[in-house]
Design a protein around this nucleic acid. Structure first.
Lengths: 230, 230
DNA sequence: CGGCTTTTTGAGGTTTGTCAAGCATGGTGG
DNA sequence: CCACCATGCTTGACAAACCTCAAAAAGCCG
């Protein structure tokens, strides 16, 4: 079963059976109940995780106590490869927003794996680089776009990343409060509420308590990209 | 001479003489005149650079043509390790803001080096991770801080990174227009101008055309961190 | 000096944040 | 099953931060 998960995640995808076997052999299982933290910002980075079930929030806290959500992770997502680096510390919090199960490797296991399979080091580099580019794009977005478009893009990302298809549209499969969306887009829960209400009135989305369902993706994409109304 | 530069930059610092020799052996030299581009966003990433002299701007362009500056690079800075990854493309522009000289490695040389010295792959991972964390902190800053504090922090970073000590303070050693600071902090040149004028009136900085000198670093730090006036 | 770019400053408008009050929702325990 | 409660959500009024645009001043270079 772990092997299947490895095969499906990007980090191990397409690697040799030997590599997967080695990786699975030294993996451990960990369960984290809803609301609990996998780790905190500032902790020494001892473990690399691959989520099997549940969703978790990647966030930072400002010195003033304000939270910034950098993303949500779901099944098959890799988190904390920084643990491969000696002396590294986690740069953010990872908190379960649902009960989660994950595979995990400690530094020793990771070190052995990377030595035995040098390709894994390049994969790690590629993974971090990819994340870096994504973050860079979001930095640009935050620096140049208005709130409505930022929320539109955040929602589209969430739907792609952790969406669950339903009769009326695609629902974000993790609990998602207005406050969460605000902390993802650098705005306030009030502004998010106003914008979601407006979209709901136009039939673009349907919402509920901690729930957002995207009904008209093309329309939201037009808002996100500022294309002409079709 | 190249070896000396390698020894001083973070990526190669502390590595064995054999590694440095190998790296120097396959390095090439490149000069880039003021205003020209090392590479463009979207180009296939073929080269890794270490700047020897001059300063260069890391920037992105939005689809609407608005520029966002992600940082300035100076001597000893490493840029484009992403070239180690097959098929990667540069995620940003690198443009000389002064005449620059750099050491550069192409993908083939980089591949050979990384294979011969596996530590270099982990170093690369560490470097990208460090940059990632820095970017993440700036993302948080942009999401939560007001303009004045963002400009204060940007200026403090520039002074640390590429500052040149002078009689009256520390000057940012690259040409730095109000527009540049605006594009670094997600605001407009008008707002930057107003804020710099206010700081100059208080004796915190002194400015000129495309020049900023920090005179009272503790005071600017208090603005950046929102500490009480001392 | 003359022409170019950069910078300053002002006036006015828009977006967005702040705060207060009340409403909806979903779970819980009687 | 229903009342209750905690939590999340909505909406309004207002204020503040910031942007936009215009015009003119200042600095630099030939």
């Amino acid at each position: 079963m772990p092997i299947e998960l490895l095969r499906q995640c990007r980090y191990f995808a397409g690697l040799s059976a030997a590599t997967l076997d080695d990786a699975a052999a030294c993996a451990q299982h960990r369960r984290v109940p809803d609301g609990e933290f996998f780790f905190h910002q500032g902790d020494e980075a001892r473990h690399f995780y691959i989520l099997a079930t549940g969703h978790a929030r990647l966030s930072q806290i400002t010195p003033e106590g304000r939270q910034v959500i950098l993303g949500l992770a779901g099944p098959r997502h890799e988190i904390g490869i920084i643990a491969a680096i000696e002396g590294a510390i986690y740069p953010l919090d990872l908190q379960a927003v649902q009960a989660c199960a994950a595979l995990t490797w400690d530094r020793a296991a990771l070190g052995t794996l990377l030595e035995a399979h040098p390709l894994l080091a390049l994969r790690a580099l590629r993974m971090v680089s990819t994340r870096f580019v994504e973050l860079q794009d979001r930095y640009r977005e935050l620096a140049t776009e208005r709130v409505e478009r930022r929320i539109a893009r955040a929602l589209l990302r969430l739907v792609v990343q952790i969406g669950r298809p339903e009769a009326t549209g695609v629902t974000v499969a993790a609990p998602l409060a207005r406050q969460d969306l605000a902390e993802m887009t650098g705005t306030t829960l009030f502004t998010v509420s106003r914008i979601l209400s407006a979209w709901e009135a136009q039939g673009i989305i349907s919402t509920g308590r901690e729930r957002v369902t995207l009904c008209d993706a093309p329309r939201l994409t037009r808002i996100a990209e500022d294309l002409p109304e079709g």
